[in-house]
């Protein structure tokens, strides 16, 4: 009995040692378990720095080829349906930003080859403001915005 415990203990400490070694080498950064999840961009407050961090460029050109379907008035800010359609050839990603949210970057979608420039989702909006869709195509950024008036905010308790 004692021996088995000792084995388990040894194994446990070995794993812990390996883990801390990996962390020390920068392989395991706490809070970034998902290597790809762009944590920094999600914490940023302004569009240019967010776009730079997430998509590699600060400025997005306004485009009439991006259509945002969202309600003019959202009675309930905790569920605002948003549909973005991009007619830009070679759209690689679509990102959604609710400008007046405490954490403005809401979602970012990477489109695989053959996937159309279309995403539909439901987001929370703390208060009235613009919803911006940023599309990356051919290394350039394009954007469109739509104002949504929120009657009851969706970020409070």
């Amino acid at each position: 009995m004692m021996n088995i415990r000792r084995r388990i203990l040894l194994q446990g400490s070995l794993t812990a040692a390996a883990l801390s070694a990996a962390a020390g080498a920068g392989l395991l950064v706490p809070g970034r378990v998902l290597a790809a999840w762009p944590e920094k961009a999600f914490k940023m407050k302004t569009m240019p720095e967010m776009l730079k961090e997430l998509l590699g460029a600060e400025a997005a050109e306004e485009s009439g080829d991006i259509n945002i379907k969202a309600p003019d008035i959202a009675e309930n800010g905790s569920v605002v349906p948003i549909t973005v359609t991009s007619g830009i050839a070679g759209s690689e990603s679509i990102s959604l930003i609710a400008v007046n949210n405490p954490a403005p970057l809401v979602a970012s979608y990477e489109l695989g080859e053959g996937t159309e420039g279309f995403v539909s989702t439901r987001i929370k909006m703390g208060k009235s403001g613009d919803v911006v869709a940023v599309v990356k195509a051919g290394g350039k950024l394009y954007s469109a915005r739509k104002e949504v008036k929120v009657t009851i905010g969706g970020c409070g308790g």
Binding site: A36, P38, V80, A103, V106, A107, V119, T121, R122, I123
Partner: peptide
């Protein structure tokens, strides 16, 4: 498709593509 989400996506999320 790969989607990266924050807590700003509504409860019981809906996704279409």
């Amino acid at each position: 498709l790969t989607a990266y989400w924050s807590g700003g996506v509504s409860k019981n999320p809906y996704l279409s593509f």
